[in-house]
Design a protein around this nucleic acid. Structure first.
Length: 625
DNA sequence: TATTATGACGCT
DNA sequence: CAGCGTCATA
């Protein structure tokens, strides 16, 4: 929780005794839990005439093994079976950083976080693949495309697939398994070790024994078996394992890529199961194995507990495993966490999470970014402009491909910046982001908008003698808010954009106030807040409205900032104004002089000197106690 | 200087 | 809702 003073939690109620122990930002830390609050899909537990068997939801996680390495090995198969790594930025620090390593390389002692040179030291024969570079940055296209290939295969098998990252996806198997259940129960189909292929059973030594046990119970008393949710769930799990095994084999057949899988009752459990036997194996995690498994599972290794919340649990409760967490009573948890989080943790500790698998096989945003560390840090307009051009070059290709393949287009362009006062002294800087409407996939337009947004923000933090006061150590742009179809006339801003290109005088293009109705997509014009209700001219540009609020939000930075928000004229900026205009004129040569009238408006006279200064000095929020 | 480059999502 | 923080993984 970033903006309160320690006496309110994230629900806004008054903190009870003990809650302050955790520090003011606990609520923010607990956000991770919120997405897991969907109600249980108890529908699947209901036995009806149509649906006589009640089973728990069945969820699988498919995770590609050292994916980037596999992608490279498919291109150069002669290296298969040998230690191999994928690094990016070969010419940089220690031969480039490792982002993927083969299991052969792991066996030879190569570690994550090693660099290429480290890897060669422990394993001289290691094959080093280098991520392609384009536009001066790492280009991950080939891995994204390979990931899409895999997803396509998965969609062929299952309706509900959630792309969780470039190389992993959750699958809800419940429906498919339910359909097959009667045929397996009736012996029309048979569960065999062969059908389960590379399956392991968590906390069990043999798939055969586990299956035998299952069938023994079924033979013994079929009616009792069907009536027992425990038995039925195990049976369903085995069917799920067959389906996932088939899927994994098909992925190999179609893509040549190998993967691991986890099959259980929730995202958390299937994710955990998937990691138990890697690579090229899948693991079933039955309900009765959760307890024993949790006894030896580190809290940090459980999904959603790998970050601050997990560390906070470990420190506050002086425990380290899920088994120990399971023994902690809810009231004890409530000493450190909110009511909801306490209950969520208690459920999780017994293996329950109700987060549904979302049916989504496409990314929701498409972006690119790059770090600029040390002397690479950007501090001039020229540098920022240049990199925006590079980013847009990459992004526009990806966006156009996405548009053609998926019949959708982005409506929001977001610029993200991390900046520091001194790139040699500060490790982590201030992050901020600003956005503008995305109205076309025209490179020039995107560069213009992205640079304007970035420059406006950085300049507001200080600009003198051709340099920003702050050095940019990370810069990125991202396209999001995908809408169906292409850019149409109904996309209001594309109308404005089109006019802009014609170089027609603004006052003729926007003669009346009727434009206010069109100004913001999908929003009631009456709700638009334009601060001082300026003339139409000031709001005409598609990004002007956004730029009007481009100054950093002090109150969002760390809570008490608002106390110091006196506004004051930044005299040094005023001095540099003419300089600003000149430089921009050159930088934005590609754009039209007609825009320059607007450019001037992008630099209002008033800036918050105090705020800008403090933003640089004030850094991270405190670490949880 | 030193993981980097992505991506999803919740809160205010 | 725009912007920030958290979590995650190649």
């Amino acid at each position: 929780m970033k903006s309160n003073t320690g006496h309110r939690n994230d629900q806004g109620r008054v903190a009870e005794e003990g809650e302050e122990v955790c520090g003011e930002q606990l609520g923010a830390m607990e956000n991770a839990r919120k997405r897991c609050q969907a109600p249980s899909t108890s529908k699947s537990l209901m036995a009806t005439e149509d649906d006589p068997y009640k089973i728990d939801p069945l969820i699988a996680l498919i995770d590609m093994d050292c994916f980037y390495v596999q992608v490279e090995l498919r291109l150069e198969p002669e290296w298969r079976g040998k230690p191999a790594i994928v690094v990016q930025y070969k010419t940089r620090h220690k031969g480039g950083g490792i982002i993927a390593l083969s299991y052969e390389a792991r066996e030879r002692g190569v570690k994550r976080f090693h660099h290429a040179d480290d890897a060669r030291e422990v394993c001289p024969e290691v094959k080093v693949f280098v991520v392609p570079e384009l536009h001066g940055k790492a280009d991950l296209t080939r891995y994204r495309d390979a990931g899409a290939e895999v997803i396509r295969v998965m969609k062929k098998h299952f309706h509900c697939v959630e792309r969780a990252s470039v190389d992993e996806a959750f699958v809800d198997l419940t429906k498919e398994v339910k359909q097959l259940l009667p045929r397996y129960l009736s012996k029309e189909l048979k569960l065999t070790p062969e059908a389960l292929g590379s399956t392991c059973i968590a906390e069990s030594h043999s798939v055969e024994a586990w299956l035998d046990q299952l069938y023994l119970k079924l033979e013994e008393d079929p009616e009792a078996f069907v009536a027992s949710s425990v038995q039925l769930n195990n049976f369903a799990l085995a069917i799920g394992a067959v389906l996932v095994n088939d899927l994994r084999q098909d992925i190999i057949n179609v893509t040549e890529f190998h993967c691991s899988g986890g099959i259980s009752y929730s995202k958390t459990l299937s994710k955990l199961a998937c990691g138990l036997n890697k690579p090229r194996k899948q693991t079933v995690l039955p309900g009765n194995a959760v307890g024993p498994l949790f006894n030896k599972t580190n809290i940090i290794d459980v999904r959603m507990l790998g970050g601050k919340l997990g560390r906070s649990i470990i420190e506050n409760l002086c425990i380290s495993t899920m088994g120990e967490l399971c023994k902690v009573e809810v009231p004890k948890l409530r000493q450190y966490f909110s009511e909801e989080t306490a209950r969520w943790l208690a459920s999780l500790a017994v293996g329950i999470d109700n987060e549904p698998v979302q049916e989504r096989d496409l990314p929701k945003s498409i972006g690119c970014s790059k770090n600029f560390l040390g002397k690479e840090a950007l501090s001039t307009r020229e540098q920022v402009k240049k990199w925006m051009e590079h980013f847009v070059s990459e992004l526009s290709v990806r966006l156009k491909k996405d548009q053609a393949e998926n019949n959708r287009s982005a409506s929001l362009l977001t610029v993200s910046i991390t900046y520091v006062k001194d790139p040699f002294k500060i490790k982590s800087g201030q992050s901020c982001s600003r956005c503008a409407p995305m109205t076309s996939y025209d490179n020039e337009a995107m560069v213009y908008d992205a640079f304007m947004v970035a420059d406006r923000l950085l300049t507001s933090l200080g600009y003198r003698n051709g340099r920003y006061h702050y050095a940019v150590i990370n810069l990125g742009i991202s396209a999001s808010k995908m809408r169906d179809g292409g850019f149409t006339a109904s996309r209001i801003d594309s109308y404005f954009r089109g006019q802009k290109k014609k170089e027609v005088d603004d006052s003729q293009i926007f003669p009346g106030n009727k434009y206010s109705e069109l100004k913001v997509k999908g929003r009631d014009a009456s709700k638009i807040q334009l601060g001082k209700a300026k003339e139409v001219r000031e709001r005409k540009g598609s990004i002007t409205k956004y730029l009007n609020q481009a100054s950093p939000r002090k109150d969002a930075q760390g809570g008490q900032a608002s106390h110091h928000q006196q506004q004051k004229v930044r005299t040094e900026h005023m001095e540099s104004k003419s300089d600003t205009e000149t430089r921009l004129g050159q930088l934005l040569q590609a754009t039209r002089s007609q825009r320059m009238g607007k450019v001037r408006r992008l630099f209002p006279a008033r800036f918050t000197d105090e705020g800008g200064t403090r933003l640089g000095g004030r850094q991270r929020r405190r670490v949880p106690q």
